[in-house]
Structure formats: structure tokens, C-alpha cells
Amino acid sequence: MVRNVLVTALLVLAGVGGGVWWARSTAPPQEIVVDVEARRYAYEPPVLRARQGDVLRLRLRSTDVVHGFFLEGYDLDARIVPERPDFEVWRPSEVQWAEAEKRGELPTKTESSVEVSSLQGIRRVREVVLRLDRPGRFRYRCSHTCGFMHPFMQGELIVTPNYPFHVGVGAAIGLTLAFLAWRPVDPSRRRGTSS
């Protein structure tokens, strides 16, 4: 029993370590410019890949109806109106669109670019700049009801090293190997085994 627990712990730890090693990256940071096109019910590109430390310049468009762009982990929300080169951005932890609209605090002029970290209130911009200091997988979702499948409209931003995935896979492999190395312990059954 003790042996089984030890073997499991060791192998899972080894798997976690392997996962961390696998996930690491040493490439220098870069600047990525992406045009994201929203449509019912997906974003194009559906997956954005980047590395920690990269700078992401996002331009958002809609090809059909009003969509949103709620990015987890980076406290960013946007409202994309079709047939416009600009879009409104704000930090959902500070401002709510519906309330700001009710108070008449919507922006009137368009700026060329804004950094999310220095964002205050609602701004209308042509480009939003994100410094990707937080690694992991973050989904961007539609935040303005855009039809039946609206709750399922989403894309993903993967900022490596993406530990949950790599460590998860490492731990899963370790766990599987550990169980294959298990020995039977039930005393009532031990006699039955042949030598």
C-alpha cells in the first residue's frame, strides 16, 4: 500500500516536472498584429497563439450584426458594430456598457489605439494593445446577444507557457504509468498469486 502511494506520488511528480519542462519557452518577445473578424457564431481566427511577454495589437470587425469581445483573464470587453472600422473597449471590472449607455457616457470620438492597462471608461478605438504578461488559455466570448447560438460564440487566446495543459498531460501520463506499476495489496487475495 505504502509502495503504491509512493510510486504514484513519484510518477505524478515526474509527470508534472516533465510538463513544466515541456511548456517552457525561451524565444524573445514579439509584436503580433491581428485582425479579428466576428460573425455569427465564431471569430476568425478562432485561435490566437502567442508567447508570454508578446504584445498583441487587436483590430476587431463584425461582418453581420453587433457582437462583443469579452476576453477572460485580461479584463477586456468590447462592442463591435458592423460596417465600422472602430469599436468600443472598456474594462468590465470597472464599467458596464448598459449602465454607461443609460447615463449617456458613450464615447463620441475615435482614437487610433489604446493600451488595455491604461484604459479608463469606455473608449472608441481602431486598435487595442495588450501586453500578454499572463500565460494560459483565455477564451474570448461574444458579450452582446447576437442570435440563438450566442452563448456558444467564442474563440481562444493561448499564451504559452500554458501550464494547465502541459502539466495536466504530464500528470496524466505519470498517473497512468503509476497504476500500471501498482501491486495487489489485499491480504485475502495475496495468497492466490503465483510466484
Binding site: 469579452f70 468590465p92 458596464q96 448598459a98 494560459g136 466570448r141 494547465p164 500528470a171 496524466a172 498517473l175
Partner: peptide, 21 residues
């Protein structure tokens, strides 16, 4: 008029990985 607001969405993948393991 409570707005749509996801609850700790960035931690959901971690929870999911734990459940899967």
C-alpha cells in the same frame, strides 16, 4: 438588469484539468 458577467472564467480550465485527472 444584472449584466452578463462570467465567474472566474480564467480559472475554469484549471478546474476542468483537475476534474479530468
Amino acid at each position: 438588469h444584472v449584466p452578463w458577467k462570467p465567474l472566474i472564467p480564467e480559472w475554469v480550465p484549471v478546474l476542468q484539468a483537475g476534474v479530468l485527472l
